[in-house]
């Protein structure tokens, strides 16, 4: 593919082919953000169930969430092409996630959500908002 061609047509065709290949290999990133974002509503819906004495909800927190985190970490570590701006997005997602999770868990949730898993899940969507926004933006950028 990268033989000693110097014709402009060949070089541009080669570059375009490489560009498409690399973009395709970077598309794990929007999928990763989407899956990471979806875990938040699921996880936060368990909070009222756990407080209500449902043992399986506690088990979910104790076993499934660490497994999920390990799986995501493994998925992340196996990647060899990083999408544009991934470091800034990671910081933003983690920063927003930490602050908004604490706000929902300690302030908003106890006051407004009560024992409703659906409302707590909605709180999870709020926490995961940057994940969804950046998943769409990253997908659009890589699809160009």
């Amino acid at each position: 593919m990268t033989g000693e061609q110097h014709e402009p047509e060949d070089m541009i065709r080669d570059a375009d082919h490489i560009d498409r290949t690399i973009r395709r290999r970077a598309k794990w990133w929007p999928a990763f953000l989407l899956v990471f974002g979806l875990c938040w509503p699921a996880m936060m819906a368990l909070i009222p169930l756990m407080n209500g004495g449902h043992g399986w909800a506690g088990l979910g927190f104790a076993v499934l969430i660490p497994l999920f985190v390990l799986g995501m970490r493994r998925w992340d570590n196996r990647q060899t092409v990083m999408a544009p701006g991934d470091r800034a997005v990671r910081n933003q997602v983690m920063g927003w996630g930490a602050v908004s999770y604490l706000a929902v868990y300690f302030i908003i949730g106890p006051h407004y959500f009560g024992d409703s898993p659906a409302l707590w899940a909605l709180g999870g969507v709020f926490v995961a908002l940057p994940c969804f926004v950046h998943a769409v933006l990253a997908y659009r950028r890589l699809a160009q």
């Binding site: 570059a15 290949t21 290999r25 991934d86 470091r87």
Partner: peptide, 28 residues
């Protein structure tokens, strides 16, 4: 203008970073 270098840049420009072995395989 050296084809290999042009290919390296073509692979790096659309993304943040690429791992050495992947780049080697993509540009052959």
């Amino acid at each position: 203008h050296v084809p290999v270098r042009f290919s390296i840049m073509a692979a790096l420009v659309p993304v943040d970073r690429v791992e050495f072995k992947t780049l080697r395989d993509v540009i052959e």
